[in-house]
Every structure is written in structure tokens, then in C-alpha cells.
Amino acid sequence: MSAASYAVCVYCASSEGVPAHYKELAEEVGREIAARGWDLVSGGGRVSMMGAVAAGARAGGARTTGVIPRALVDREVADTLADELLVTDSMRERKALMETHADAFLALPGGIGTCEELFEVWTAGTLGMHAKPVVVLDPDGHYSGLLAWLRELVERGFTGAGALERMVVVADVTTALDACAPPPPVSRSVL
């Protein structure tokens, strides 16, 4: 990743059984990341939604970085077409590398792995450990039960309202990527 590039880390499903419309969504996200001139950081697999987002990004000319634990190289069919494929010894190392290579995080519909990755970067952002955008793209209510539970945590006093505000939840690709965008440059006035 060059110093001038901007990279979005996309968390999503790598399970083969997901419906085709989710794979299409992932591919659209990849294409739109490329259209903005950004790079993609992903989990390093080339199957299911994970493979689709990387394929969409590459089709649009984006640079792709995949990060995958050695134990999953065969299971998730490593994305050997990635511009950079980083193989780690553990899931913890994988998540740390994904975080350091990314300027923003976008979670698509997914399962427990996607939720675990999302919760880790969201928690770190809420605690002030990074200021990177954390965005959830939920076009069809996939996360509605989880979001209801999170609101209940606020009501019961287990989580502050600011934590929920730190995670942006949107329903369409354009709004999701707008929420991931870098902040506008600060203009400097000359005295």
C-alpha cells in the first residue's frame, strides 16, 4: 500500500452457502471501491462473498491485499490473485494486519466471523484506539436482531449511546462508501 493510497477493509462471509444476491452485493462493493480509486483489504479468500468483493475490486483496477491465516489457506482457497497476499500464523495476527493496512472498515452481511471482526474494530474505535470509520452495510435487515440487542445494551446501561453512534449502519452501497471516505482536507488560511 503506497502512502497516498486509501484502503477499505471489507468484512464479509466466506461460506459457500450464502445466497447469490449477497455475492452480487460484495462484487458491487468491490467495483465501487475501485471506482473511487481506493484499495481493498480483505480476508484473503477467493470464495463466496470474500472472493466476490476482491474480484469486483480487481475488475475495476483496485489494488487488493488479502490477509489469511495459514490454517485457512486451503479451506478458504487463498486469493492467489491478490496484489499482496499476507499469510499469518493466527486469526489474531490476521485481524491486526487487516487493521493496520486499512483506513476504514466496512462490514457486509456475514456470520460469526464477520461479527467478531466488526466488534473488534468497532470496540477499538469506541475506546479511542483508532479514528477510522466503521460502517455496516445492511441492505435487507440482516443485522436487525443484532442492532436491536445493541440498543437494548444501551437501555440497560451496559454500553454508552456514543458507542452506537461510532458505528454507521446504512442500507446502500453508495452511502456505505461515502461513510468510509477519508475526511476532507483541512484548509489552511494564510494570515
Rank of each mutant, 00 (worst) to 15 (best):
A13M: 04
V154Q: 01
D178R: 05
L85W: 03
V8F: 00
T80Y: 02
T100M: 08
E32N: 01
F119K: 01
Y22D: 11
R63F: 11
G110Q: 09
S48M: 14
R46E: 15
F105L: 07
G160P: 04
V154F: 02
E32S: 06
D140K: 10
L40W: 05
Y11K: 00
M1C: 05
R36D: 11
K95V: 00
T174G: 07
R63E: 05
V53K: 10
M98T: 05
C9V: 02
L108Y: 06
V169K: 09
I112R: 09
A78I: 08
D103W: 03
M91G: 01
E76T: 03
V186E: 14
S42Y: 13
T64L: 00
V41P: 10
V73N: 01
W149Q: 09
A171S: 15
A161S: 15
A104K: 11
E117Y: 11
T114E: 09
D138R: 02
G51A: 14
A124V: 09
R46Y: 14
M49H: 15
G66S: 06
R94H: 01
A59F: 10
V173H: 11
V77A: 10
M98V: 03
A124Q: 05
A7E: 05
A34S: 00
T114M: 04
V173Q: 13
P19G: 08
D39M: 03
V18S: 00
H101Q: 05
E24I: 14
P69V: 04
E93K: 10
H101N: 07
K23F: 05
L81C: 13
H101Y: 15
A102E: 04
D103H: 06
A4M: 09
A54L: 09
L127D: 08
A78D: 04
P183T: 05
L191K: 07
A82N: 13
T88C: 03
S187L: 08
D89W: 08
G160D: 14
A78V: 03
P109E: 15
A104W: 07
A102Y: 01
T159S: 14
V168N: 08
W149L: 11
R36T: 10
L97A: 11
